[in-house]
Design a binder for these strands. Structure first.
Ligand SMILES: [Mn+2]
Ligand SMILES: [Mn+2]
Ligand SMILES: [Zn+2]
Ligand SMILES: [Zn+2]
Lengths: 137, 137
DNA sequence: TTTGTTCGTGCAACCAAGTTGCAAACTTAT
DNA sequence: ATAAGTTTGCAACTTGGTTGCACGAACAAA
């Protein structure tokens, strides 16, 4: 299990330090996405800057992706195993206006859209807002 | 012309104060979207809080809509005349990674997507990132 | 093994955007 | 004229994000 985490880091060319193993473990346990401030609270005593840089490293190496859900803080989630973060790899995200959680809708790819002349496409951020199944009960 | 601006406010049930007329005028002149900090700079001496509340009022009354383009500051733009800000009224936005401007692609409606069971839909924020025609020259 | 270099971490300081409380100014209704 | 409600200006504050710097661990060359 912990082996799994370590090898995941190595497979993305990230040196598996103690800190990084801990952060990746927390990320793996999430059912929804997590923000830097939320991540901070998951640890007794951890430095914001270190966590910040850890997330950046993870993102640069495509271990995680970030989502701007309009809540004021950027959220993060593990990438799918085969994800290269190309536009065609991207999926839709769902932000619940009640519980404020953001979910990866991994099965729903971001629709391809036809841009006007001379616009080039690099990436897409698509966030659907509404109420999640849990909050609708 | 100035009449036009005043009537636009009235038509949205917003009392046309001096400040609001000025802000709406600036908004009307924009070719791309504008953020609160940018709006602030358009005035010699204007108060952040007042502008902030003005934008909020405008948004609540559906005179403008806001876009979270992931740049760190929320952008604003005038709504189309007939816009009710319902999901079917929404359009895609384009964020240029070079000039950092965000454009309303008013002709490109946000694609309808099929949400998983028990997710309700209230709104969508779709931002395409790339390079704009001006920056590609 | 010793030395020098790179890399990761912790701490503090900082910045920018957004937000709020409060009192003064202004508007509208009585 | 007076009272009540609305808008504005100012200052203070919160939060998320970011950076500089120094220390220590890891690593590689000598
Ligand atoms: Mn995701
Ligand atoms: Mn728009
Ligand atoms: Zn929810
Ligand atoms: Zn551009």
């Amino acid at each position: 299990m912990n082996e799994n985490i370590e090898s995941k880091l190595k497979s993305k060319n990230i040196k598996p330090t103690a800190m990084r193993l801990l952060v990746l473990k927390v990320l793996s346990e999430q059912k929804s996405t997590i923000s830097l401030p939320e991540l901070e609270k998951k640890f007794e005593k951890a430095d914001k800057a270190t966590l910040y840089r850890t997330l950046k490293t993870f993102e640069e190496n495509k271990l995680i992706h970030s989502i701007d859900d309009g809540s004021g803080s950027v959220k993060y989630a593990l990438c799918q195993d085969d994800c290269k973060c190309y536009p065609e790899d991207l999926h839709v995200h769902f932000f619940c206006v009640k519980c404020k959680k953001t979910y990866c809708l991994n099965d729903i790819p971001v629709p391809v859209i036809d841009l006007p002349m001379n616009f080039s496409l690099e990436s897409v951020n698509m966030v659907v807002k509404g109420v999640c199944p849990i909050c609708r009960l």
